[in-house]
Amino acid sequence: MQARRIARELALLSIAQLPAKPDRLQAQQLQDVVLAAIRTLTTEVHDTLETAAAELNRSSDRLLSSETRTTDVQSAKAMIREAMDLTQTAVNRLGSALELPEFIQLANQKEVRAYTIELLTQVKAHQAEVDRTIEQAMVDWQLRRLARIDQDILRIAVTEMSFLGVPQQVAINEAVELAKRYSGEDGYRFINGVLRRVVEQYKSESSVT
């Protein structure tokens, strides 16, 4: 995992905990916010493992029922299919849980924390301007009507493009990856479209000047 990719995800998990006014941000407060996000991820690992264990137990119960409590083949097949689905879901959860310890370990690295704090600071410092840019790129929609996670993914991407020197395509790609992990089913397509319109706005503005 790349340091900046981890930092973006950590920043996304932290933004909602920041004070409304950026002038109240202090270095120690930012460190505490990032630490709280890491602790949240640690709890997520534990919860994911518990959920997977419960699903495996349910799968086992279904397999047992298919052998002892069914009176026809169709019912037995249905129970077996359900057991297989539960097992697959549990395996997927375990795979996700196995990735998180690496994420947590990397999140504690100095480089990751430094960029996370830089992102949080810049997002808050320029939020009004960033929000105006996003609003102008949205067609028949308003930023405040989006899910909070989608708002923050867009803010991180536009902040990186505008104030942190991140190449536009890199910022878009990273935002899409965040949306695939944290947004709704089609959220990443919407975010991709908005950010591409933001880039078109930048091009139009630069051609005028």
Results as ranks from 00 to 15, higher is better:
50 E>V: 05
126 H>L: 13
37 A>K: 10
118 E>N: 13
80 I>S: 09
96 S>W: 09
121 T>I: 00
101 P>H: 06
13 L>M: 05
56 L>D: 00
13 L>I: 03
150 D>L: 01
172 I>W: 01
27 A>Y: 05
143 L>V: 00
173 N>R: 06
126 H>F: 15
3 A>H: 10
26 Q>S: 13
169 Q>K: 15
192 N>R: 07
7 A>H: 07
52 A>Y: 00
24 R>Y: 06
144 R>D: 11
205 E>L: 09
15 I>S: 02
197 R>F: 07
138 M>F: 03
185 E>W: 14
138 M>W: 02
120 L>H: 02
51 T>C: 03
193 G>C: 01
15 I>F: 11
55 E>F: 05
50 E>L: 10
65 S>V: 09
10 L>K: 02
139 V>S: 12
120 L>R: 14
178 L>I: 08
77 K>M: 12
16 A>K: 14
160 E>P: 04
109 Q>K: 12
151 Q>N: 06
65 S>N: 12
9 E>T: 10
160 E>H: 08
156 I>T: 08
135 E>L: 03
125 A>Q: 12
131 D>E: 10
71 T>S: 12
93 R>T: 02
77 K>N: 15
156 I>V: 10
43 T>V: 10
49 L>W: 01
77 K>E: 14
42 T>S: 12
152 D>P: 02
44 E>P: 06
1 M>W: 08
180 K>M: 05
183 S>F: 12
153 I>K: 02
157 A>G: 09
7 A>R: 14
172 I>R: 00
205 E>T: 01
90 A>K: 01
152 D>N: 09
122 Q>L: 11
119 L>Q: 09
193 G>T: 12
30 L>Y: 06
166 V>R: 07
120 L>F: 03
26 Q>A: 01
202 Y>I: 04
198 V>I: 03
151 Q>V: 10
2 Q>I: 11
190 F>V: 10
106 L>T: 13
179 A>L: 11
47 D>V: 00
56 L>K: 00
189 R>V: 03
135 E>V: 01
12 L>Q: 09
134 I>W: 01
190 F>A: 15
150 D>W: 04
117 I>H: 00
158 V>Q: 04
104 I>T: 11
153 I>D: 05
